[in-house]
């Protein structure tokens, strides 16, 4: 049986979790998972970083407890310039992140479901800077079908 630790060891041994080791870039979604925090006003908040030479969002998977507004702090600790293209209702949000910079993004997402975000510069997306925002929860009760609860996978 595979455990999380074994997966990390395997990624390291195969060189899938870094730049120019096994493949050319870092394999997508080999980064960390974290949960956003919900403030008293209902707005969720989180920080996502790009660490030096890791070419990976940290976390690369951000989990929101439900749909709504998210205030995201974005930090580029890398020694190269990147950017962020983020999902949000109305229009996608774009921010340029020069070396050693910090910015914010205010997003609105429905959920449930998950959404990609990335750094659309060069091939940052393919080399590892593609992440996911996962929104938990259910649709509002009034949007559910009028039928008994059904079996799920």
């Amino acid at each position: 049986m595979t455990t999380v630790e074994e997966r990390e060891d395997l990624l390291r041994r195969l060189g899938l979790g870094g730049q120019n080791t096994a493949a050319l870039g870092r394999l997508l979604n080999t980064g960390n998972v974290a949960e956003a925090k919900e403030r008293e006003d209902g707005v969720m908040e989180a920080t996502i970083r790009i660490r030096p030479d890791e070419i990976c969002w940290d976390p690369s998977i951000l989990v929101l407890p439900h749909g709504g507004d998210l205030e995201l702090e974005l930090i580029n600790d890398d020694l190269n310039t990147h950017c962020a293209l983020l999902p949000s209702n109305g229009d996608r949000k774009f921010i340029w992140l020069v070396n050693h910079s910090r910015g914010t993004a205010r997003l609105n997402l429905d959920g449930p479901g998950y959404y990609w975000f990335s750094s659309p510069s060069g091939n940052d997306e393919g080399r590892g800077l593609t992440g996911a925002i996962v929104v938990l929860g259910d649709v509002p009760p009034e949007a559910r079908l009028d039928r008994p609860d059904q079996p799920r996978p």
């Binding site: 974005l74 229009d91 992140l97 910079s101």
Partner: peptide, 18 residues
């Protein structure tokens, strides 16, 4: 948030509509 270096972060501002 603190920087991993002593130098203050460059202010990247707020993300805009694409």
């Amino acid at each position: 948030t603190t920087s991993e270096s002593a130098e203050p972060y460059v202010d990247a501002g707020e993300a805009v509509d694409q």
